[in-house]
Design a protein around this nucleic acid. Structure first.
Lengths: 190, 190
DNA sequence: GGGTTTCTTGAGCGATCACTCAAGTATATA
DNA sequence: TATATACTTGAGTGATCGCTCAAGAAACCC
């Protein structure tokens, strides 16, 4: 009896993520989403419930992909190798909607309003920080870096530097590759 | 024959700066401004012309104060002392609307739209970077840090780190003082 | 193929957006 | 004090906001 939707829900979420990522929460209107996702208002609300609900799904997708790709990189290059490579990766990716981090953009835009989405972005940033901390711990166990440092503290500083780098990479008066190299070089002195 | 305005224009710009700084461009409505500045629409538009024009004034004020306070700090502590102290200063100031940088927030919010204000924020960031570069140069001339490094590159990295720190300082799961200390410590190894 | 169920469509809802302007009010000059 | 010249007021502009819902179209089961 039922009828299948004409759209691929997962693909739509990924597409919405890219739009939100680039233009932000207030900067993306439902008109924008309807046009890009090719959904009329009725279908949109039947599928996702609200603009905020879709944004939350997009955020979650973004965060999951971020952790997954970091772990995959560690599988390939080892924990320290992944941490050193990541700065280059985030500024090199030219197919991304923007180089700035979507979690950071969301948090910066909505935190002052106590919006739910800011809290969710914050939670995802905590998860990402934990991922970095794990990699630092693994690097210490593998003897790649000294065990004198607190991995949580290293992770917080590393994440902070990455956020700055990714925002700075949007400017064209700055050589982001140099900053990425300096961040990576700092990891070798640990 | 004329009649003086009942408001202090400079004070209103400073107040608008704080509102925009905290809530962003799209996050601040004219209703908000009218309520906080206690101006009816007619007076508002007679005084400032448009929301964007006032935002531009607020941005300019913010940037001028930023450079001025950095130079004042250098007068007191010397160039390297100022660069080392600044990370602590930006996260300690509890009276600020938010710890994140208004230029960075503006740039992040509006750059994807090619909004004029993003370009102005970018220009102010360039000026701030030049200020940092000058301080690094002066620190080198004074023998406080090695002359092996390119001051422009040092300034770009330093500014990027500060942007990350100031955004991170908004989170309560992170000890921002530790990051500030680590940034300052990095300057001693130059 | 008929009946049922879901999906799609798009006009349009009230609220809010940035902004305008004509009328009223206060002040400085003459 | 009279008049000219601002400044202040707030109702109201059209556009856009996120969102609703009734009607039509399409696909599944029997």
């Amino acid at each position: 009896m039922p009828r299948k939707p004409a759209y691929d829900r997962d693909a739509l979420i990924a597409q919405a993520r890219d739009i939100f990522w680039r233009h932000g929460w207030a900067g993306t209107s439902l008109k924008d989403l309807e046009r890009e996702l090719k959904l009329k208002p009725g279908s949109f609300y039947a599928a996702f419930g609200s603009k905020d609900a879709l944004y939350a799904l997009a955020l979650e997708r973004y965060a999951q992909d971020g952790v997954a790709s970091m772990l995959a990189l560690a599988e390939e290059l080892g924990p320290l190798g992944a941490l050193k490579a990541q700065p280059y990766r985030v500024i090199a990716a030219s197919d991304l909607p923007t180089k700035a981090c979507m979690l950071a953009k969301t948090y910066a835009e909505l935190q002052a309003k106590d919006h739910d989405l800011a809290g969710q972005a914050g939670a995802h940033m905590i998860a990402m920080k934990s991922c970095f901390a794990d990699l630092f711990r693994r690097a210490q166990k593998a003897g790649e870096i000294s065990s004198d440092h607190d991995p949580e503290r290293l992770a917080a500083r590393y994440q902070s530097d990455l956020l700055g780098l990714r925002l700075t990479a949007e400017r064209d008066d700055v050589n982001a590759a140099e900053i990425a190299a300096d961040i990576a070089a700092d990891l070798e002195r640990l």
